[in-house]
């Protein structure tokens, strides 16, 4: 309850954060209702079945965004792919954030040799070039599920979350209010949850948003160069199809443009959330108008 009011207070203080969250909210809603939308488009049959309609129909009243090389409705495909992209972002974001937070707290709060080992490990993962490794991994991952893709990508993104949060834990754990909690007989876990965690919410938010962003775009990157794991159709996959089939020359421009517009919006929204949160916890970045 208290956390909820704090979150609301934070949002009210930053217009950027609010704007980012609204865009994100609309996209999430679209994704949530994508099965319904897809159904409505199909009107009884599956609009993204191969040969559901004629190939390469241009955008028009029947098919708002036309059809692709297999005669699938592009609008329906985009809706479904948006939902897939967002799910991958959410899965990778949650895994990275949880792993990052746990490692950061253990390392930062316990200090000493535990911190040494964990920080070295995190450091190693941070300097490994991620993209080539992802390429290698996805070469093996032929028919993988959406969840597996999310896990695969989050292996490489949690260290970023861990690094930011750890440095915050290090600075917060020496605060006098932590000492006061200790002389009030609070246990370590209690201190972490009740004293440190609430003050770290913005950082955790940033960690989540950046990991989600990294995961979505990491996957798009893989797919655009044709190395995406098979079996998962996200926005990147549609762009790849548009490129390889020369859709633009056939007048099927929405197949290329719409996913890119959606990805751009997503990128902007997640970054606005990031910057907004940063503004809130780092008042030096705030405009002169203050709170």
């Amino acid at each position: 309850m208290r956390i909820l009011t704090a979150v609301l207070r934070t949002i009210r203080n930053s217009r950027r954060l609010a704007a980012g969250l609204i865009i994100l909210g609309v996209m999430v809603l679209l994704a949530l209702f994508s099965p319904v939308i897809v159904n409505a488009i199909g009107g009884g049959k599956d609009p993204i079945e191969v040969a559901a309609y004629e190939k390469w129909l241009v955008p028009g009243p029947g098919h708002l965004l036309g059809t692709d090389q297999f005669g699938r409705d592009v609008f329906a495909m985009v809706m479904k792919a948006l939902s897939v992209s967002l799910q991958i972002g959410a899965i990778a974001g949650i895994i990275s954030t949880v792993a990052g937070v746990i490692v950061a707290f253990v390392a930062g709060y316990k200090g000493g040799w535990i911190d040494g080992i964990l920080s070295t490990f995190t450091g190693i993962l941070l300097v490994i070039p991620t993209f080539p490794l992802l390429i290698a991994l996805s070469a093996y991952a032929k028919n993988v599920s959406l969840f597996q893709v999310g896990v695969m990508i989050s292996i490489f993104s949690w260290p970023f979350a861990a690094k930011t949060i750890r440095s915050q834990v290090l600075s917060l754990r020496t605060r006098p209010y932590v000492d006061l909690a200790r002389v009030s007989k609070a246990r370590d876990l209690e201190i972490i949850v009740t004293e440190l965690l609430p003050n770290l919410l913005p950082f955790i938010g940033v960690g989540f948003a950046s990991s989600a962003l990294g995961a979505i775009f990491g996957l798009v990157g893989l797919e655009v160069i044709g190395l995406g794991p098979g079996g998962v159709v996200d926005l990147g996959q549609i762009i790849y199809n548009a490129i390889t089939t020369g859709a633009l020359t056939l007048g099927a421009w929405p197949m290329f443009v719409v996913p890119i517009v959606l990805l751009t919006l997503l990128f902007a929204a997640l970054n606005m959330v990031n910057i907004g949160l940063e503004e809130v916890y780092n008042p030096r970045l705030r405009g002169v108008a203050g709170e």
């Binding site: 208290r2 605060r175 006098p176 209010y177 000492d179 006061l180 002389v183 609430p198 003050n199």
Partner: peptide
């Protein structure tokens, strides 16, 4: 054995 610390600002968790 109980303390009173130096900084009256930092002793309170700003969250509560």
């Amino acid at each position: 054995v109980q303390p009173v610390f130096q900084d009256p600002y930092a002793i309170f968790n700003p969250f509560y």
